[in-house]
């Protein structure tokens, strides 16, 4: 029992990331009908916003401490980050909290990138076939990846977990298991809660606001909404920005779990396409459900007991599920009938 609970918990953090990226991908596909292969790059850019924030906070002023000497006998040079010089103790805490603070940086950056991408490039590809959309966004993903690589190097850059969320939580005790049976890192809880809030927020926004209603109407029948005198294109552009923000924030908060490097985007892209297809192209709840489902399935298949029966299953489970779903139920788990069903 405790083993099962542990695997579910282990699947949650990966599942949260899948769910958020797939939600963004589905928002773009559902509104604009564009297959965005550069979506993984948005996740990666979000993650690198955290890196940039960390570096910004660590910008230091160099002072010379006359009272001490270094091992060569010269006066010791002390690097004090500006925030520490200005705020003292609070500044040190700020550096520790660079990842959550990076959200403040990531939101405007992702909005600009998302809207710029839609207006500058993808707008011209609405009428072109899906294959062309895949190809041009694939090219864009390569470009983004290379720009990141040129500026940040090829190695993963570890990011700090904020002090308050360090360490692990013994979940099992609360549920009546033995001590140390179910231990789970605190930051992953934070990530899951963050994902739940973000996904819930997007859902509420789409379902309970007028703006969201118009967008949903546009997803169902773009032409009619346009005929009613609503500038649907502008709203869809805004939705592209929103999708970019959701994906970017997923990347920001994921950095303490997985140190970002330049091929982070490509690694997640393939999986998230599979997630979207399993959930059903164009279905937002489907994307979220499939994200968590596949994350948890993946962690279950990584159990030694399962691997003993089916060796290698943990490597291929997601793709296997995708193949089965596509062959038996091509519109996905929660997909609407007729959407992309050929």
């Amino acid at each position: 029992m405790d083993a099962i609970l542990l695997q579910i918990l282990n699947g949650l953090d990966k599942g949260s990331a899948y769910a958020m990226i797939a939600l963004g991908l589905t928002l773009i596909f559902g509104t604009l009908g564009v297959v965005n292969f550069a979506h993984g790059a948005l996740f990666m850019i979000g993650a690198f916003c955290a890196v940039v924030m960390n570096r910004l906070l660590k910008l230091s002023v160099e002072t010379i401490d006359e009272t001490k000497t270094d091992f060569l006998g010269n006066p010791l040079k002390v690097n004090t980050p500006y925030v520490e010089a200005w705020f003292g103790e609070f500044g040190t805490t700020m550096i520790g909290y660079s990842v959550p603070l990076a959200i403040l940086l990531a939101i405007p950056v992702m909005i600009v990138i998302g809207i710029g991408m839609e207006r500058g490039l993808i707008k011209h590809f609405y009428k072109r076939p899906h294959a062309d959309q895949i190809l041009v966004t694939f090219g864009l993903a390569i470009v983004a990846q290379e720009i990141i690589k040129a500026n940040f190097g090829a190695n993963p850059i570890p990011q700090p977990t904020p002090d308050a969320f360090r360490g692990a939580l013994d979940v099992g005790i609360y549920l009546g298991f033995e001590a140390n049976a179910v231990v789970y890192p605190v930051w992953r809880f934070v990530y899951f809660i963050f994902a739940a809030v973000l996904i819930g927020g997007v859902m509420i926004f789409l379902n309970y606001t007028t703006f969201g209603m118009v967008v949903r109407a546009g997803m169902a029948d773009r032409e009619t909404v346009g005929l009613l005198g609503i500038d649907i294109d502008k709203r869809f552009t805004a939705m592209f920005g929103l999708a970019a923000v959701v994906t970017g924030l997923a990347g920001v908060m994921y950095t303490p779990i997985l140190s970002p490097d330049y091929h982070l985007g490509m690694d997640f892209l393939v999986l998230c396409f599979v997630v979207v297809v399993v959930g059903g192209m164009g279905s937002l709840p489907g994307a979220v459900a499939a994200g968590f489902l596949l994350g948890i399935l993946q962690s279950f298949s990584a159990m030694n007991e399962v691997k003993a029966i089916l060796p290698g299953i943990d490597q291929i489970i997601i793709y296997l599920v995708a193949v089965v779903i596509l062959l038996t139920r091509p519109r996905g788990l929660l997909g609407r009938k007729g959407v992309m069903e050929e």
Partner: peptide, 22 residues
């Protein structure tokens, strides 16, 4: 269409991952 692309991608990734493990 895109489903075909994803299916072939899934099979290729399976082969790649299995070549490394099983």
């Amino acid at each position: 269409g895109i489903y075909f692309s994803i299916l072939t991608l899934a099979f290729a990734q399976m082969s790649y991952n299995l070549a490394y493990s099983v």
